[in-house]
Nucleic acid binder design. Structure first.
Lengths: 239, 239
DNA sequence: CGGCAATGGTCTGACAATGGACTATTTGCG
DNA sequence: CGCAAATAGTCCATTGTCAGACCATTGCCG
């Protein structure tokens, strides 16, 4: 019954270099910086990540070698995302990593996801959205529907993150992003069915509509149903 | 409309020493290690916080000098919590710090709190609790009612944290703990009224009852109403 | 064409943090 | 009494991280 494990946890999940890699990877995998787009300049990014430029550059070099980004110098140069998830369809380590951290973590991450994302949907619906925010949401939702198997995970994440974002709480958006990275790691270990994707599109429409209509209750329920799909999938494959 | 500020945020909120201090302070202020109780031994705590023993010791020394803990060596020695919140009734810096980070942060932290704590209450109610968990919850709730002005904040936090804990999600419990630290910092800047405390006791009873009854909907609503009290207070004082 | 601005690339000296070995103190137990 | 165990306190060589200055490349614009 001791809860100190929740507060006496590691203050940092690795060294500065590893955490920088993790963050940039997050931006790429969650579609925050889409393929072909440029990351912020090194100096700015280093400042924002609270890390020295040396350390940041080591992180970028690692990502270059892994094929995630490419750097060009000169004016209008920069570091560009070169990632295509279809280029690495099945990470051989994925399943091993996942099974190693089971099953305690599965429940943790899924419970947390439910709280965060259902809460975000409700909070988003409860807010008075600007015209721009409404447009943004609809645009991203349309983009998800035009995704193929290689880009679905990225665009789906982007939509969910956009919902969290319009609650106005940066902390909430960050938490959703972190949680999604963990969930996606699990999802990478199991197959993605076209049938599920199509079902998700319909659910996304329902969620967005409820949010735009300002119906918090319905937005929450719709989100909960949507999440239940992948939750059941994960529980089935990994138990 | 760029959401990268949620992911390109600092990877660490300070140096190892500062973060260690922050964590131990969290354990003390949220009542996770009550006054008079012992912290884990240095070696163990250093390992759990992912920090070298030297760094941890510096953090402990800082907390000793601030009067939060006392250390004794020898067998059955250790570092003991010596904190009494009534000993520092009004932090003169509190208001200055708070006003400096306003008002963006107020909305952020309160929205986030709503999502986390309402979600935690719902998730807790949706779970099949063990007899021990039910007992624990009731015990802590009773302790809050016996609190005085000096211990209320601590015991209140402990109850909310216990609710998050029984969802079974460590990530959620950690997030609630972090968020509560931020909210408490704001609350330290405004007066605490006896009338509000008594109202809170009644609300706590309602929340715990709904959770024990397995009524997620009611638990969520009760928690939302409870949170609205301090939210209105904060918005009133700080706007 | 030549300078300028924006970017990535490199170097170095100072400081922070680590981990591991060692010491000192206290208490219970054979 | 003397030893063993559990704890806090100290030291040090090694490695990680930082801040900032400087260099190299590229492309726009006067």
């Amino acid at each position: 019954m001791n809860i100190d494990h929740a507060v006496f946890r590691p203050v940092r999940s690795g060294n500065a270099f590893e955490e920088a890699v993790e963050r940039i990877l997050q931006a790429i995998k969650l579609g925050i910086v889409p393929t072909g787009e440029r990351l912020p300049p090194e100096r700015e990014l280093a400042t924002r990540l609270g890390v020295s430029r040396m350390t940041l550059r080591e992180a970028i070099r690692a990502l270059q070698q892994a094929g995630y980004v490419e750097s060009r110098r000169g004016r209008f140069g920069g570091t560009f995302v070169a990632y295509r998830s279809s280029s690495a369809p099945h990470d051989p380590d994925a399943l091993a990593k996942v099974v190693a951290s089971m099953p305690t973590d599965l429940d943790d991450v899924l419970t947390y996801r439910d709280v965060l994302e259902v809460g975000a949907a409700r909070a988003a619906a409860a807010r008075a959205l600007t015209a721009r925010e409404r447009d943004h949401l609809v645009t991203i939702q349309a983009e998800v529907e035009n995704s193929d198997e290689g880009t679905y995970r990225q665009l789906d994440s982007r939509l969910h993150l956009a919902i969290a974002e319009i609650t106005g709480s940066t902390s909430l958006a960050s938490a959703v992003a972190d949680n999604r990275m963990r969930v996606n790691e699990l999802l990478d270990a199991i197959p993605l069915l076209q049938h599920n994707i199509e079902h998700s599109h319909a659910q996304h429409r329902g969620i967005v509509q409820a949010i735009l209509a300002g119906n918090a209750e319905r937005a929450g329920v719709a989100m909960a149903e949507h999440l239940e799909g992948t939750a059941a999938l994960l529980r089935g494959f990994l138990s």
